[in-house]
Design a protein around this nucleic acid. Structure first.
Ligand SMILES: [Mn+2]
Ligand SMILES: [Mn+2]
Ligand SMILES: [Mn+2]
Ligand SMILES: [Mn+2]
Lengths: 221, 221
DNA sequence: AGGAGTATTTTGACTACTCAAAAATAGCGG
DNA sequence: CCGCTATTTTTGAGTAGTCAAAATACTCCT
């Protein structure tokens, strides 16, 4: 059985490689994402390679093997189902569930995960709009536009928020930018690096490009 | 923060010392209960003593300090609330929740535990009839009679089952000996070491002394 | 092509947990 | 009070994960 550390490394590599498909995930990326020293990642990576969970090219980076990806998908499934369970059943705030799920994903049995899945009606997305892999580890990653790349002055709906920090999530909630919320992008200033958004309640919010890129939108239903 | 290993050792020492109050808990007891080698326990105990969580008398055994007991009580509270949550909310079988809670007790936050406590209506006993420490770590251990020591031919009610193995718990369920079940002890044979019990449905079951001592009863409400 | 600067790997060390087997001890039974 | 046995402790070793700092490799700019 993989340790929870191994599970976290694999999940991290999966998520990072989804962010930039095709490219190898680098040591430094992993070190930053997991808040560990670069040398720690190198030695861990070697162990993962020896177990056949990743393929490792020194000075270039890693890629998940079929086995590694399957394992990572199961961890990601557990993580996202737990997040949704915490919000829907336990009434925990969506800004706090990520940290909670980070630990629980290693402690919950497959039987229990399936009970949650059932209770929640086999959901396809978590509270942040992240897609939930199915029980066989299949996942389709929909490519939506962010507030930086979407059309202006058009009615849109938030479908995903890709920043897990409590501060960002609380801000998004306050400003009416949670998944499901409707909005219009009023204007963008390349020079200032800001995006002005009008939320459903009519309030205008100004976001920096960094923040705006974390909010994905689609056409309203 | 204590590791989950430390939490398990402390919980183990607490439970063992409740089984025989006053006496020190021995190295061998802990080794058996946790399925680790005796030498492992000795070194762990020394570390716990250095942290001020137990007082250690070589060749005699350990005792929890005030701080150690508080920590152990919180772990025990988490364990038992999780067990009840799994049975009541998630519909998991009572014979399986112990193993599940053994892991979850180290991963669930205090906030979440309190949500469970609330959802369950501040319960005082878990699915096996074990008392649940309150949020301040207080616990009253009711002393009930077991099927070996209780009066014969009298209507009684099962209040607690003190064996966590799935096999035993499944047997108890099959034979109508779960907490809340009514029964009568028909007879006991000192020589054969057996106790004959008549369950609520009229069926008679014969139990060995070992098994019978694991079932605690009280007067029906 | 040669450096400069950045990223990665290596090295050496540390904490936490574990076991097997050897050594020490306590507590009887005579 | 002496020796045997069961228990406990000690010793030596191994796995898993981590860091700081030194060494190395890659990349890009001049
Ligand atoms: Mn995690
Ligand atoms: Mn999420
Ligand atoms: Mn445990
Ligand atoms: Mn219990």
């Amino acid at each position: 059985m993989p340790t929870s550390t191994v599970e976290d490394y694999l999940k991290c590599i999966l998520v990072e490689s989804q962010a930039s498909p095709g490219a190898r995930v680098t040591t430094g990326q992993i070190a930053t994402a997991l808040s560990v020293a670069p040398g720690t990642v190198t030695s861990m990576i070697k162990a993962l390679a020896k177990s056949g969970l990743v393929s490792y090219e020194p000075y270039s980076g890693v890629e998940l093997t079929r086995e590694g990806r399957e394992l990572a998908m199961h961890v990601l499934r557990r993580h996202r189902l737990i997040e949704l369970f915490l919000v829907e059943v336990m009434g925990v705030d969506w800004s706090e569930v990520h940290a909670e799920a980070e630990l629980l994903e290693h402690a919950v049995s497959d039987r229990l995960i399936d009970r949650m899945d059932e209770m929640l009606g086999r959901p396809s997305v978590d509270p942040h709009g992240d897609p939930i892999p199915d029980a066989r580890g299949r996942l389709e990653e929909p490519d939506a536009a962010s507030l930086v790349g979407c059309p202006l002055a058009r009615a849109l709906r938030v479908v995903r928020v890709t920043d897990q920090t409590p501060e960002f999530l609380q801000l998004a909630e306050r400003e009416g930018l949670m998944p499901g919320s409707e909005l219009v992008v009023a204007s963008r200033s390349e020079a200032a690096g800001t995006v002005v958004v009008e939320a459903a309640d009519g309030r205008q919010v100004s976001l920096g490009y960094r923040a705006a890129s974390r909010i994905q939108v689609a056409a309203p239903e």
